[in-house]
């Protein structure tokens, strides 16, 4: 039998995944979500729990590059996958253009939705299938609810980040 997936150890399962570039090995029961692993096991509390039912986007992380709701994903299903949280968005060079643009445009009030908004935004800006006009960006971002209603500034921040990413690409900065 192929054992590339998590294997049984009593009631618990072994899990190996990469979080923000770091290899992690854990043993955990199957009913633990990726969100719980990040916050409670790995201390990465930047990712928020809002509704816990896929309805708000506060828990958005990137799994193998794709934005997903960590609250609805069983951790054991992330075997071998690469997870990026808001803590992994910045690099040695500094903040991610999305983070800088959020600061510049004041794209938050309380900040609770912000990590999820930024993870969705960073994924959206790398997805060529999604248009860059207001309507397309709003639609692609609609899985992230903002209780404070910072939508207008979030939209502007995303446009600014897109421009910065494009000019960085021109200069051969980041690919």
């Amino acid at each position: 039998m192929d054992h590339s997936g998590p294997t049984r150890e009593g009631g618990e399962l072994a899990l190996a995944l990469t979080v923000n570039g770091e290899a992690r090995r854990l043993t955990l029961p199957p009913n633990v979500t990726l969100l719980e692993v990040l916050r409670d096991r790995l201390g990465l509390t930047g990712t928020k729990k809002g509704c816990d039912h896929g309805q708000c986007g506060a828990c958005t992380v990137r799994v193998d590059g794709q934005a997903m709701n960590a609250c609805l994903r069983l951790a054991v299903m992330c075997e071998g996958q690469e997870v990026t949280t808001v803590e992994g968005l910045a690099s040695e060079v500094g903040l991610h253009p999305v983070q800088r643009a959020f600061l510049e445009h004041d794209a938050y009030q309380c900040g609770f939705c912000t990590p999820g908004q930024m993870m969705s935004a960073s994924a959206l800006l790398e997805d060529e299938r999604i248009g860059s006009d207001d309507a397309a960006v709003r639609e692609a971002m609609s899985g992230n609810i903002c209780r404070c209603g910072a939508y207008k500034n979030i939209l502007e921040a995303i446009h600014t980040a897109r421009e910065e990413l494009a000019s960085q690409r021109k200069e051969g900065g980041i690919s």
């Binding site: 958005t60 997903m68 639609e139 692609a140 609609s142």
Partner: peptide, 12 residues
């Protein structure tokens, strides 16, 4: 499909 759910949910 694109009229349903959200980007995150459709990815899953």
């Amino acid at each position: 499909i694109l009229a349903g759910a959200s980007t995150q949910l459709r990815n899953m």
